[in-house]
Simulated scan of single mutants.
Amino acid sequence: MNKAGYTLFYLGLAALPPVAGLARDLTGSAAAPLQAAAAVLALSMTGLLVYAAGTRDRPS
């Protein structure tokens, strides 16, 4: 992992818990932070798949 990867990782650790709290405050549902976490996980998995597809060796 390079410096940008670590930066994004620690930025996510700092920024995402308040987002989950905001989701809880806006909806009033105790399940909202879990749903926000599931959405972030789905986005990260999608990003990983796009990255893997883009870096795959292609025959010339």
Results as ranks from 00 to 15, higher is better:
49 L>S: 09
13 L>R: 11
51 Y>W: 15
28 G>L: 04
42 A>W: 05
32 A>Q: 04
27 T>P: 07
46 T>P: 00
16 L>F: 14
41 L>Y: 06
60 S>W: 14
33 P>H: 05
6 Y>N: 07
3 K>N: 09
2 N>P: 08
4 A>Y: 07
54 G>P: 01
19 V>P: 01
24 R>E: 08
29 S>A: 12
32 A>L: 10
26 L>I: 05
41 L>W: 12
23 A>V: 06
59 P>N: 09
7 T>Q: 08
49 L>R: 13
36 A>S: 09
19 V>H: 02
26 L>N: 00
59 P>E: 07
6 Y>M: 14
12 G>Q: 05
22 L>P: 03
16 L>G: 01
44 S>W: 13
44 S>K: 07
55 T>C: 11
46 T>N: 00
17 P>T: 03
60 S>A: 15
58 R>F: 13
43 L>R: 04
42 A>H: 06
33 P>K: 04
24 R>M: 08
31 A>C: 04
33 P>W: 03
55 T>L: 13
47 G>T: 03
2 N>Y: 05
58 R>K: 15
32 A>M: 10
2 N>S: 13
29 S>E: 06
26 L>M: 09
4 A>V: 12
24 R>C: 03
47 G>C: 08
37 A>V: 08
28 G>V: 02
36 A>D: 00
55 T>Y: 11
1 M>V: 08
59 P>L: 14
15 A>D: 01
28 G>E: 02
44 S>G: 05
57 D>M: 11
14 A>M: 15
17 P>Y: 10
8 L>E: 00
41 L>P: 01
4 A>S: 07
51 Y>T: 06
9 F>L: 14
46 T>E: 00
42 A>K: 04
53 A>D: 03
55 T>Q: 14
6 Y>R: 13
35 Q>V: 11
14 A>P: 11
24 R>L: 08
20 A>M: 11
8 L>D: 00
35 Q>Y: 14
59 P>S: 11
5 G>R: 03
5 G>L: 03
45 M>S: 01
2 N>K: 11
30 A>R: 10
11 L>I: 10
43 L>H: 05
38 A>P: 01
47 G>V: 02
18 P>R: 09
36 A>K: 01
14 A>D: 02
15 A>M: 14
9 F>G: 01
11 L>V: 11
18 P>D: 02
47 G>A: 13
16 L>R: 04
43 L>S: 08
13 L>Q: 09
13 L>V: 15
7 T>D: 01
39 A>L: 14
27 T>I: 04
36 A>E: 02
5 G>I: 00
48 L>K: 10
9 F>R: 09
9 F>S: 01
2 N>E: 04
33 P>E: 02
23 A>S: 10
52 A>F: 14
25 D>A: 13
45 M>I: 07
27 T>Y: 07
41 L>A: 15
57 D>F: 15
36 A>W: 05
39 A>Y: 11
42 A>L: 12
23 A>L: 13
57 D>A: 14
41 L>E: 00
21 G>K: 12
5 G>H: 05
28 G>K: 10
22 L>F: 15
57 D>V: 12
45 M>T: 01
14 A>Y: 09
42 A>C: 06
29 S>K: 13
46 T>K: 03
15 A>V: 10
18 P>F: 11
21 G>W: 13
14 A>I: 14
45 M>R: 05
1 M>C: 10
